[in-house]
């Protein structure tokens, strides 16, 4: 087995905003650590001077002319909203944070 990095499943669940049961945490910790261990293969490759490939082909981004199109009616934008009021999305109380 290759190196099995330590993972902080609590922190990752917070970053991902996913509630996990105790069971899920245990299972995921082990699986994610296994998978990361499997990823260690990459650490052996010499990548010095290799350009990271972010896109399958090299091209410049197309630019759109600054011309507005008709927007949607609020009802269309909110058609699937779990809760709405006064043409706005209702969310449970937001406890303020930076």
């Amino acid at each position: 087995m290759q190196d099995r990095p330590e993972i902080d499943i609590e922190k990752l669940a917070v970053l991902a905003r996913i509630e996990l049961t105790g069971e899920e945490k245990t299972a995921l910790s082990a699986q994610v650590a296994d998978i990361l261990g499997f990823f260690q293969k990459l650490q052996e490759v010499d990548v010095s001077g290799i350009t990271p490939m972010a896109h399958p082909f090299e091209a410049a981004a197309p630019l759109r002319e600054d011309v507005p199109a008709d927007p949607w009616a609020a009802s269309r934008s909110l058609a699937n909203a779990p809760a709405s009021r006064d043409n706005q999305v209702v969310v449970p109380k937001v406890v303020e944070d930076a």
């Binding site: 759109r64 507005p68 199109a69 927007p71 949607w72 609020a74 043409n87 706005q88």
Partner: peptide
């Protein structure tokens, strides 16, 4: 600008709620 940064929905201020939206904005 007349439209938004990444889509052609109009940019503006003081309009009725969620009236300057489209699929991309949402």
């Amino acid at each position: 600008t007349a439209s938004k940064m990444f889509t052609d929905a109009p940019a503006g201020f003081g309009q009725p709620p969620n009236s300057l939206t489209n699929a991309v904005v949402m």
